[in-house]
Design a protein around this nucleic acid. Sequence first.
DNA 1: CGCATAGTTGAGCTATTTCAACATCAGTGG
DNA 2: CCACTGATGTTGAAATAGCTCAACTATGCG
Lengths: 215, 215
Amino acid sequence: MEFLKEIPLFSGLSENQIERIKKISYSKNYLKGEVIFNPSEKGDHFFILRKGKVKVFKTAKGKEQIIKVFDKPALFGEAASFTGKNFPAWAEAIEDSEILIIPRHRFLQLLKEDPEIGMKLLSVMAQRLIHLTNVIENLSLKNALSKVASYILRKYEELEEKEIPFSTSMASMELGLTKETVSRMLGKLKELGIIEKSKSRIRIKNLEALRDIAF
Amino acid sequence: MEFLKEIPLFSGLSENQIERIKKISYSKNYLKGEVIFNPSEKGDHFFILRKGKVKVFKTAKGKEQIIKVFDKPALFGEAASFTGKNFPAWAEAIEDSEILIIPRHRFLQLLKEDPEIGMKLLSVMAQRLIHLTNVIENLSLKNALSKVASYILRKYEELEEKEIPFSTSMASMELGLTKETVSRMLGKLKELGIIEKSKSRIRIKNLEALRDIAF
DNA sequence: CGCATAGTTGAGCTATTTCAACATCAGTGG
DNA sequence: CCACTGATGTTGAAATAGCTCAACTATGCG
């Protein structure tokens, strides 16, 4: 259970507390493509991603808008846990994943006993709010080229490397564009000498220009 | 300070607790159009809307996307308080407003002393998250007609009345459309006999059909 | 009453989508 | 190691939803 310490929410937890979480949770494996939750389920679990990758998204009319992609150590599905209503979105494993599940009422119990965790959770959710705020900004205030540019920039900032892994279709679903449009915008950025592209990677050649385009 | 009790976050507070909040806060008035905070400010306040109306929004290139409109008793600007970073958006009074301001560190102090408030805040933020999730869905998965329809529907559900106040330009900024487009979509809904329109009000004539169109 | 603000309508424009065809890649089994 | 398959990405041409611009009307406010 040591991996819990890598999650901001649980960093600084005592052995005792970790032991407690172990007691109230169970682990489950999901294959790539498996649905973890959907909007018709009541949100009475809380998920901690231990291994793998998960996307949380909305759908309508065959379209799909990714809200957030979660990477290895992370928690998700927490919002529904606090309202006690249905999940507001879908979650699906995009890689084989191992996920720790904590029943809602047990987690609430834990929170009561340990307000420190509650405080940390507040800051996790605050960051989440800010993230969504940025997603909204990206979706409604930017054109396709800026969207793609800022997507690349974000990955760069996350990884702190000029060469980033890139999937056109993933990006398109996060950005609210079609894969064709993303492909064309990449072409434009390449023409401008701002990026280079090879199979499933992108390398930033002109960071300044990229920043300008991203707004 | 009795109005605090109307805010979910503070409902069920003891006189003692209310007294404490009174001590750590101060009140400020804003005229219609005045900016309350902007993204270049550090988020070390917490706002409680006592009277009036406030819009929180993002801007870029002269465009504006409303994230949420807050009505009389509500708290806002809380996300930044927990990250300690800058506000992620703008806030502006859209009516003359009276706002209670609580300095960040004092509020955090209060939270420590009173974990019950923390728990409530968690559920407020959870609802906020779900709201933003819905905004994203509306922005990226729906066409103009559905956006307008679901906007009307939402107001209807909030007020529980078939006749709702409606401002074309407000709606357009919340929906990420131009006022012209909103106006045209209203026209279409009117043609279909789904709504009726008079000056600044809309009356729903066919709720079922409206629901269909809103998805 | 008059001015500023908000809403409407039409015509043309443009960014993005759609559709279709093709190319490339990664993994699988022979 | 190659051939096959399904998934992923690319490119072009045509369609379209929503935007822009502009002119006009209605509304509310001092």
